[in-house]
Simulated assay, not measured.
Amino acid sequence: MNCIALIPARGGSKRLPGKNIKSVMGKPMIAYPISTALQSKVFERVLVSTEDNEIADISTKCGAEVVPRPSELATDQATVHQVVRHTLASLERAGELPGCFCIIYPTAILLEPRHLVESHALLSTRNVDCVLAIQKFKPHPFKALSYEKNVLFPAFPEHFTKKGQQLPSFFAPAGAFHWMRSQAFLDAQGPVWTMSRSGYILKSYEAIDIDEHEDLAMAERLLIAKTDVR
């Protein structure tokens, strides 16, 4: 089954302007997921969907192909779902619709090629249409506290005093990548959450969703630590 990587990278970001090309250890942020996708050797093509000329230029220099994104899909109201449909429609018109694709987020700078190889294997061997990168909730959701009128109290008092091993595991999207079978995505009548899916578990230090300056600082420290270990 032929596969493509799709990196959605618009130019605008209100909380962290220029986020997708901010310098991280001397490289634009988007260079990391492009390099990881290419090194995995899982994909026939690595595509970047963007309306931004600077992102397009950097992406091309890093070895990716650029899919020009229309302005109506470059607002903060546009969804990744819409961007994927636009890209797949372009490929389908050209007779190049892939069997599957992997959405890799431009801020996924801590991903390693093996993560993509292993998660692709899950899509290939499990009877599902999607594989989502996930991570365990830390701290556990049942340990949540409400804070009202300067008073703290447990949000889930029936579970709050239980030990960790007594609580069920909960996971959240890791903000790193999402595999899908192309035809299943195009045929889906509802949200992608209605499609059959499985998860690929990332450790907390292998993925961090970068939305603000403190997220970027933490991701860079983790990347430095990983580089030092090697």
Rank of each mutant, 00 (worst) to 15 (best):
Y147F: 15
F177V: 05
K226Y: 04
S204W: 07
N127T: 12
K19G: 00
I109S: 00
G175I: 04
V67I: 15
E118W: 11
E72D: 15
Y205L: 01
A219C: 06
R230Y: 07
V46P: 08
P154G: 04
S204V: 06
I201W: 03
T194A: 08
A217I: 03
P141G: 04
T60F: 08
V80D: 15
A89L: 09
G164W: 10
I210D: 03
P139T: 13
S71W: 13
A5Q: 10
R230D: 07
S146M: 14
V117E: 08
A184V: 02
P113F: 01
A155C: 07
E65C: 13
F185T: 00
H159Q: 10
L222C: 05
R69P: 02
K136G: 07
T87L: 05
T161W: 11
D129A: 12
K203Y: 06
K149W: 08
E65D: 14
S196N: 08
L222H: 05
S13M: 11
G63H: 10
W179S: 02
A174T: 01
R69Q: 15
R230E: 10
L47V: 01
H86P: 06
K41V: 00
P68A: 11
V151Q: 13
R85Y: 01
V117P: 03
M1G: 11
V24R: 00
K27C: 00
R15W: 03
V117M: 06
L91W: 15
F171S: 02
H178V: 02
R221E: 12
S49A: 15
P33L: 03
L73V: 09
P157S: 09
V128M: 12
C102M: 09
V66Y: 09
T87W: 03
S169F: 06
H213K: 12
S204Q: 10
A155I: 07
H140L: 04
H115A: 08
C62K: 07
K14N: 12
K162R: 14
K22P: 00
I104H: 08
F153E: 03
E96A: 14
L91R: 04
E148K: 14
H213V: 12
K136S: 09
L122Y: 02
W179F: 05
R221Y: 05
L16Y: 11
D209L: 06
G199C: 10
E72K: 14
E148N: 08
K138H: 13
F142C: 03
G99T: 05
L6K: 05
S40P: 00
A9V: 07
M29Q: 09
I109Q: 00
I224Q: 10
T194Q: 12
A5W: 12
